[in-house]
Amino acid sequence: MNIIDFSKTNSLLNSFVREIRDISIQNDRLRFRRNLERIGEIMAYEISKSLRYKTISVTTPLDVAEISIPDEEVVIATILRAGLPYHHGVLNYFDCAGNAFVSAYRKYKETGHQSFDIHIEYIASPRIDGKTLILTDPMLATGSSMELTYRALLTKGTPRNIHIASIIASQQAVDYCKRHFPEEITTLWVAAIDPELNESSYIVPGIGDAGDLAYGEKE
């Protein structure tokens, strides 16, 4: 699996990551959602460089220009709910892409937040046979939600290529994805890789709960 870690290079992306991490900024929900969206736009642009292209002729008012455009069908798949603004950012650039949505949530056991299972409750997706699948989730904590989402989407076909696009990933999740996704067709794109998870499986230092920061606390 190819792993692209943008924190290893200096770019404007780091400024947006800083804002979603910073406790003095992140509680502005509008700004938080917009930053997720902007990071999604940057991710989409970077992913676009890896696609297959074809050349077409475009008629201008004065002549004909040759332009290279993507030659792949793209489906963007998102895990609800924190992924929605991030998904929207990716879609802003892949504006003709198909869209898939999966509801995946943690069901905690009686022992508390230290033990949970991941449940898939809802899926809406076009066919993905032979297409480029972009799996988006701002936080990649354990990797198990992403894997189960991918398995659920396989009921809609087998993609040609897979791009996992996350903002903050734990090293544990990176290792998990390397073991559970097809190595030869998968690329992992992350803005930063954090070293560990806490006892509740939240990424440390991370950002906290992305869904709550984007849309408010839930019961």
Rank of each mutant, 00 (worst) to 15 (best):
M43H: 04
V58L: 14
I42M: 14
R81M: 09
R34H: 14
T55N: 10
E41M: 10
E66R: 15
G112D: 09
S48T: 07
K109F: 13
Y45L: 06
R31Q: 11
Q26R: 15
R29S: 12
R38Q: 12
L84F: 05
A44K: 07
K54Q: 13
G112E: 08
K54N: 13
T55H: 03
V64L: 11
N92L: 07
K109Y: 10
L84N: 07
A82Y: 05
S24Q: 11
R52P: 04
V64T: 08
G98Q: 04
E41D: 01
L36H: 03
D63K: 11
I76G: 00
I23L: 14
N92R: 12
R31T: 06
K54S: 12
Y108D: 05
E110C: 09
Y93T: 06
H88W: 03
R21H: 00
P85Q: 07
S50I: 08
S50M: 12
L51V: 08
F32L: 06
K109L: 15
Q26G: 04
N99D: 03
I25K: 15
L91R: 04
D22N: 10
N92H: 04
F94Q: 00
G40P: 01
N99R: 11
T78V: 15
T78E: 09
K54P: 12
R38N: 09
I20E: 01
R106E: 04
I39Q: 09
I23R: 13
E66V: 05
E72T: 02
S68F: 05
R52K: 15
E19P: 05
V74T: 02
I20T: 01
T59K: 15
I76H: 00
Y86F: 15
G83N: 01
F94K: 00
L80T: 08
I79Q: 11
E72Q: 09
P61Y: 09
I39R: 03
D63I: 06
L91E: 03
K107S: 13
V75Q: 02
P61L: 04
N99G: 07
L62E: 10
D63A: 12
P70A: 08
I56A: 14
I42K: 04
S24W: 05
S50N: 12
I79A: 06
Y45R: 12
E73S: 10
L62D: 12
A65M: 13
F116Y: 12
R21N: 01
G112I: 11
L80K: 03
A97C: 03
A104D: 03
A82W: 09
L51G: 03
A77N: 02
S57L: 15
Q114R: 15
H87N: 13
D63C: 08
I69D: 05
D71S: 05
A97F: 05
S68K: 15
Y86E: 03
M43E: 02
A97G: 06
D28E: 07
G89C: 04
